[in-house]
Structures are given as structure tokens and as C-alpha cells.
Nucleic acid binder design. Sequence first.
DNA 1: TCAAAAGTGTTCTTATTACACCCATGG
DNA 2: CCATGGGTGTAATAAGAACACTTTTGA
Lengths: 245, 245
Amino acid sequence: MAKLQEFFGAACTVDNVIFGFDEGDLKILLIKRGEEPFSDEWALPGHFVYPSEDLENAAVRVLEEMTGLHNVFLEQVHTFGEANRHPFGRVITVAYFSLIKIADYKLQPAGIAKKAKWVPISEVNNLPFDHSEILEACFQMLKRLVRTRPVGFELLPPKFTLTELQHLYEAILEVSLDKRNFRKKILSMNLLIDLNESQEGVAHRPARLFSFDKGKYQEFLSDGFNFEVKESKSKSKMRVSTSTS
Amino acid sequence: MAKLQEFFGAACTVDNVIFGFDEGDLKILLIKRGEEPFSDEWALPGHFVYPSEDLENAAVRVLEEMTGLHNVFLEQVHTFGEANRHPFGRVITVAYFSLIKIADYKLQPAGIAKKAKWVPISEVNNLPFDHSEILEACFQMLKRLVRTRPVGFELLPPKFTLTELQHLYEAILEVSLDKRNFRKKILSMNLLIDLNESQEGVAHRPARLFSFDKGKYQEFLSDGFNFEVKESKSKSKMRVSTSTS
DNA sequence: TCAAAAGTGTTCTTATTACACCCATGG
DNA sequence: CCATGGGTGTAATAAGAACACTTTTGA
């Protein structure tokens, strides 16, 4: 039997999969590591948890350092604790994922921008540590979440079109959806407010703009909903990995 | 900025919510602690993760020590890492939950039985540490899981009646269900095998016995299903806390 | 006038809900 | 013969799925 002291030699980190949606693509934020191990490689943003820092607070701290944003959607996903997952010693990592509006991120000073980049999720590969596994777990979590919570609110700008919202769902779920059925369903939830405004300057019929109803949104956040979607039969959409080695 | 060394002073534990189903009640296994802190109090079974032990393995180890059972359903739920949650230092705990057949457990030698007991979930209260919060998280997880995975297989004996299965769902979801609708739905899944056997020695019409179809079960385990259930309109069932302080 | 995306309804099918009486057994 | 829980079907409603053409704008 080990003595109590021997158990207190581990470190804990948080790693954060930060999702954004831009140009029809679901993306995550990667950072170029400045320290060993894996210095100069692109990895998930993360950091050690300080000795007297709450775990959740560490995740918030990393997120705020990366994005400059506060009050961001953040949820714990899974903890990875293989004994040899980190070369420097026993390091257990807790994975979080968060959802941000990329437009907000872009307004931030460029301090961190030199060492951070948004990468479409289909193009991410060869992450160091067990970060690929972490990403996969977070992506699965997002897929699950999108069917029970009105997640679009976190990822889209304040005003958006129904097509943008549909594309978001398609990007997350990796399916294609029927336009009429999607609209019927999402509108029947009374979650959206029709702003009676239209897009401007587009080379086609301008779309109506909508925003989320914050009251309804909070309701759905706590109670959940059931957004079951089935891939539309006609045209199927495959996940394309455009990554090259 | 802290030095690397300063991060390596934490300990990691696992805590395990072990669910069983018996006498129509959903129960969990509690253990009488043999060590400080909270010695002699009833708590969730758990233990430190050894320095070179995989996290998941620690959860399996605790489970096997407690129950003597192998290959048990076990899933990670959430990690609790408030800085001051443990009086002895920085201890982060990873919560797991598992599902066992209480009948199997009862066959085990009674070594641990003196310091362990099954408690109906409605009667659990005042657990030490943040164990109440951990239990709540695991119970929520079980509720979620029961609607997407054929969880009954893990909790019921090899042969069971449809009413027993229904009572299991009712205990987990804390609702009452319509008998006919429940049967129609569960039978339509082709998950059950009608054994063409009947109960014996009951003071009423004997019920047919069923078992799970292992092939179908595996399929549902990986693909999931959608067991949406709505509380039956006529008679509602409230969660009754029979605990007395 | 063309290209591009927006917008819009109906029919069919499937799943869910509500609901009440007879049956088999042991005591 | 009574108490107990087992077992069964149908009609009404709601939700989901399939599907194609017209509209508005800028270039």
C-alpha cells in the first residue's frame, strides 16, 4: 500500500476545444506551442491548473487568454488520464469545449493572433499528445448537444439568416438537411425572432434576418428540447477530409 | 509564472457510483470509510489513482474490489476539481458510474459486505466531500443514458418480466409509464427474446420471462436508439424522499 | 436576361398517445 | 372465490419525411 504522500505527485491540466463557425465551416482554434514538449507544433490550447485554482476556473482562464472573451459557453467533456500520456510526468487533463462567435473573436487585439489560427475541423490532423482523441470526444459532444440545446445562439452572430442556421446544423451533424422541413421545425419552436430586416448587397434575393429569443433560449437551455433531424434522402453529404500530410 | 515543479503536487482519485436494481428500487452501493477524513461515514467508494496507473484502470480496480465483478458497465461522468474540495490537499476526483446486477453481487464472499450497503437512491443523503453532487451528476447521466442505450441489460438478471423492465425504467426516470405503450415500444425494438417460460410460485397469473438479444444489444450500444418516453397522463409518480435526518 | 440563393405547402407515412377489460394463479 | 398482477388492441392525434417551383436581387 502506497503512502499518502506518494499520491500527491501528479499535475492537472485543462485543454480546450474552441469551436467557431465561419464561411460555412465549423472550425477550431489551434495554438502554436511555445514550450516543450512539442514546442512549435499546433495543438489545442491548454494549461496547467494552478495549485489553488478551481478546475473550472482554469478552463475559463485559458479561454479568456485565447479569445479575450468573457461569459462564453463552456462545458466539461471528458478527462484523459492515461499514465504515460505526457512525457514530463503524471499529467491528467480535463477536456472542455466552448462555443464562440468568430466575429467577436476577430475584434480582439492581435497579440495572440500570431500564434493562433482557426482550422476547419475536417482539416485538423496530427495533433500532439492525445489531442486528436480529445478533439474527437469534444466533437461528438457537440453533435449530441446540438440536438438537445439551442447551440446556434453561441456560434452565430446576433443577426443571421435561416440558411446560415441550417448550414451550421449541417456542419455540426455532417449531414444535409431539407430546407423546408428544417425551417418548419425551427420556426415552430418559437425560438427565433423575425427582425423584419434583410440582407443587403448580396447578388441574389436577400434573406430575412433573425435573432434568437433570449427568453425562450434560456428556457431551452435548462429544459432542453428535442431537435431530431434525419439526413435528407435526396442528397447526402459526406465528411470530406481535405487534409494533406 | 509558476515553475513547472509547482504543478506536480496534486493527487487524483476516482469515485464510483455503483447502481443496482432490486425490489423495484434503484439503489447505489455505499461504503463505510475506514480512513480519515470522514472516517466511519458512509460515502461513495473511491480511491487514489496510483502514480503509474491509468485513470480508467483505477475506476475498474475500485469497482472490482467493491463487487468482485469483472467486465462491468462503467462510464466516466464528470471531474470535480474545486481547489478546496479535499481537506488533505489538492485532490481532483473523476466520477464514474457503473451498472451491476445486484443478484450477481450477492453471490460474492461477504468480506466487504460488513462495510458496504445498498441504499435506495431516494434515501441517500448527507454524503461527505462533494459526493452528493457527484451522485446527482451520475444519476442525471443515467437518466440520459436510459433513453439512448439499452441499459436494462446491465441491471436486470438474465431472465426478467416485462413488468420488471418497466419498473426499472420508472425507477430511473422517476415517472410512471403506460403498460401497453411501454410493451408495444420495447417489443417493437426486437431487443428482447421471449423465452417461452413463466414465473413460478407467484400468487397471480405468472408472467412470461424474457432475456436480451445480445446481438441487437451490441448494435444498440454502438448506434444508440431513441427511447423517448412520456409520463403516463393518468397517474403521476413523484420522487419521494423517505430520508429522515 | 442570367445566375444564385430565398422562400413557400401539401400529401403521405409513421410514431405516439389515451384508454379498460379479461386472464391465470395461489391462498 | 377473491386478491393480485399479467396480458391485450384500437382509434385519434401529432410529428416527420418527401418533394418542385416561383421570387428577388445584382451583375
